[in-house]
Design a protein around this nucleic acid. Structure first.
Lengths: 131, 131
DNA sequence: CTTGCTCCTGTAGTGACTACAGGTTGTAGC
DNA sequence: GCTACAACCTGTAGTCACTACAGGAGCAAG
């Protein structure tokens, strides 16, 4: 599989794949005789993981940590647990934040009677200092 | 009021205020004889609006639209509602994914505590998701 | 009159991409 | 074999929303 196939299979831009390699979240792949990158199924899964983690708002450093967690050998279960716990705390924090965002956005949308701007709850909500 | 006061009153970085001016979300202010920017209460409110919108995840283009709408009280607020709804959809999508990640991380931590060598399924947890 | 703060402009750095220039390789049709 | 063209390569620059810093000017207090 070369980079274009990986791109189609994982739904990730070719340029982004090369960027992830430079950023160290994708392993440096083998090359064909002509210099082209060769990938396998594992790379498709890894890319899928990276995209989901990114969509959830984790930065690439956290992605590196999560990937390392995935690759922890049996021996370092304590380490793995500690890393997982830290990520869990972060996820909980992010969940709480998103839930309050949702509450506010949802209130804005529900209360908007789709009338004139003068009575618009969306605009009004933004003019009110955040709770 | 000069830029430092506005910064303190609105809780926004001085550099960010100048950036917002360049970006066209804050109006170009009057200047004192010495070239310093002069602001009024309206700017404090506008900055509050911008920060609140940014905190809710709206990008500056959406902020520009919302600000433009705010200045036309007789216009329809359909646009504002649409922008807010799009943002709400995005937040709900992320919430769903984060909840499945939380479940997986939590399972790993619990299994580690039990002394079981947890088989990490973070990648699977994130690959078997919607969107 | 020096110290120190705030202000000014302009440029560069950040993270995570995205796009493009300019060159090489592989393949398909003639 | 020749030509066209897609897919690949490297390297650099642009995007967004800031943030930081260099280098200089203005002003107030000690």
């Amino acid at each position: 599989m070369q980079i274009g196939d990986l791109s189609r299979n994982a739904g990730v831009n070719v340029e982004t794949i090369r960027y992830y390699e430079r950023a160290g979240v994708l392993p440096v792949p083998a090359r064909q005789g002509n210099g082209r990158r060769v990938y396998g199924e594992a790379d498709v899964r890894r890319l899928g993981f990276i995209r989901h983690a990114r969509d959830l708002g984790f930065d690439l450093q956290s992605v590196r940590t999560l990937l390392a967690l995935q690759e922890q050998p049996e021996a370092s279960c304590t380490d793995a647990s500690r890393i997982a716990q830290a990520q869990l705390d972060e996820v909980e924090r992010r969940l709480a934040q998103l839930q309050s965002l949702r509450a506010e956005l949802s209130r804005m949308v529900v209360e908007c009677r789709k009338g004139v701007v003068a009575e618009c709850r969306v605009i009004e909500a933004l003019n009110t200092s955040p709770s």
